[in-house]
Design a protein around this nucleic acid. Structure first.
Lengths: 220, 220
DNA sequence: CGAATGTCTCCGATATATCGACGACACACG
DNA sequence: CGTGTGTCGTCGATATATCGGAGACATTCG
């Protein structure tokens, strides 16, 4: 089954629990060329309990972390995109984010090693261009894509479908609430700010009350 | 005066308006080694109207963009930090974010050029370490810091003070609202989701009503 | 056939670097 | 002295790269 934080698990396993900080909490800073091992900027870390951002980052990044695809998806996606046109690594990440409606942006940690492997297999080659490197399929790569059409899929579609509709909609609304709160904080009087604080506290309470009233599931 | 998006302007100029997309909107993609000039992931861009993140990124990043410090602050901050101990570029950015309570994280676009200039002036030197480069003051740099103590300030304190209290507090609450909404979206029934949608819509409406009732300022 | 173990891929964080836009500051001119 | 112009520093976005943790998948063993 999918990890606790993947939306695939959300989709297939409604029992999945959000408790705890997810991967970021357990993730240790590494040695080697990265030397620092201090506490991370996550919740509870350092002077700022909300993370790197004093306002806590966005709430969905807290949940929507970790694996969003399956093994082989990044490789398949790269082959699919490069069979359309040459692209650099950054463009590949951007395009996948765009085509998945934003639910999946492969990290550099998967894209660059996958590109390296594809080069090792002589399916892809890189050319210097404008200060960066543009990747394109080789002749061998084109033949491979033709012969393995079923492997060169569009995993961004699955990612998009898996994310569903409710989460984006509610988080979009929550985002608008945050925008309005920021405007009050900026342009409002102290009395306005106090009023806004109460509105937000009431909304939070109402949402948790919805969760609390959850009875054993019927017809799910 | 400060730019439309700096919190300094927020602080000193309450008339400042949030309308429009800020710097990101006008910022053009550049040529040269970065070739792509397509529409950005910002509001209104591409398939996903909320930005790179399908859920719109966090609301405060929309407002809290652009300049947060004055000319020379990054240089002063680097000198102050390196007079304590050697650090690499990434650690400098992290430390400033931490000490400012998160309101200021200088971008690589200011830190690395400033480090280069400080090296050119023989105030700082770099040493390879663990795959990266650690920067430290030279003898000349140490003398400079001693002679110009008034220039080597703690701009993170000013940044922190300028951000004030209301914005972080309200955005922290909005963040918690977002977290609760995400939990409902994930674990709730369709009826729960509909109920949560209403809670969020009501909260947004209440916040804008607070702003709408603003009379001409008294005693501000 | 199910459980345990091993392996492989994905990801977040770390780390670096630069360009062009833009805001703020200094300076010059009327 | 105020306004306009020029210059300089800051920033977001672009672009690359890698390490170690962890999840998912395959394989092996009982």
């Amino acid at each position: 089954m999918f990890g606790p934080w993947s939306f695939r698990r959300f989709h297939h396993d409604p029992e999945a629990c959000f408790a705890g900080g997810g991967r970021g909490r357990h993730h240790r800073h590494r040695g080697g060329h990265h030397g620092h091992g201090g506490d991370g900027p996550g919740p509870g870390g350092g002077d700022n309990p909300w993370g790197g951002n004093p306002f806590g980052g966005n709430p969905w990044s807290f949940f929507f972390r970790g694996r969003k695809t399956r093994r082989g998806d990044v490789r398949a996606a790269i082959l699919a995109l490069l069979s359309e046109q040459p692209r650099n690594g950054y463009q590949i990440m951007q395009e996948l984010e765009q085509r998945s409606g934003g639910v999946w942006r492969p990290s550099p940690g998967s894209v660059y090693p996958a590109l390296q492997l594809l080069q090792d297999e002589d399916l892809v080659k890189a050319e210097e261009s404008g200060g960066g490197r543009v990747f394109q399929l080789t002749e061998h790569g084109r033949a491979y894509v033709k012969e393995h059409a079923e492997d060169v899929s569009a995993p961004w579609e699955a990612a998009r479908a898996a994310a569903g509709e409710d989460l984006p909609e509610l988080l979009g609304l929550a985002h608008q609430v945050g925008v309005a709160a920021a405007q009050v904080a900026h342009a409002g009087t102290p009395a306005h700010v106090a009023e806004a604080r109460k509105v937000l506290q009431d909304a939070r309470r109402a949402l948790y009350r919805i969760l609390a009233e959850d009875a054993p599931e019927h017809g799910r």
